[in-house]
């Protein structure tokens, strides 16, 4: 019996499919969801979100949010999510440099600093997920 999964961001529905297994980056560590999982509501950290379907694994990067598991339906609500193929590792590395630079230099308003930290965090997740993927496919 498959699990119906939806990954939704405020901008769009990133992913929707019937899959066999979901591995999500929970706030307390990675957790796997198989069919007939108990109802669960968990906060998500940033990281690799994997779905397995018929021996094929797909990977998305997600950045925070939470996951609602209810029967055989999984709904992931996250700030942002992208397919691993879409990740631009070089771009993320640049973004990391920029954000680190901005934070180190200081003199930022509180809002700007918060923004820099968010983009730094996202860049780090992007790099981590993107690089792992690349190694695997090599």
């Amino acid at each position: 019996m498959p699990i119906h999964i939806e990954v939704i961001t405020p901008e769009r529905k990133v992913y929707e499919d019937d899959v066999d297994m979901v591995i999500a980056p929970g706030s307390e560590g990675y957790l796997g969801i198989l069919p007939h999982h108990a109802p669960l509501l968990t906060a998500l950290g940033g990281g690799e979100f994997r779905v397995k379907k018929g021996g094929v694994e797909e990977v998305l990067a997600v950045y925070g949010g939470f996951m609602d598991v209810r029967g055989d339906r999984v709904v992931v609500l996250t700030e942002a999510a992208e397919h691993v193929e879409e990740i631009d590792v070089a771009g993320a590395q640049e973004a990391r440099e920029r954000a680190q630079q901005a934070i180190r230099t200081g003199g930022l308003s509180a809002a700007d600093e918060a923004r820099a930290r968010v983009s730094l965090e996202r860049a780090l997740v992007r790099i981590r997920v993107g690089q792992r993927r690349r190694r695997r496919s090599e």
Binding site: S27, A38, L40, L41, T42, A43, F66, R70
Partner: peptide, 17 residues
């Protein structure tokens, strides 16, 4: 009611949501 599990706990999740 479905008996829900909350990670790490309902209050934290509420404060995210």
């Amino acid at each position: 009611r479905l008996q829900y599990l909350f990670e790490p706990d309902p209050e934290t999740v509420l404060n995210v949501v």
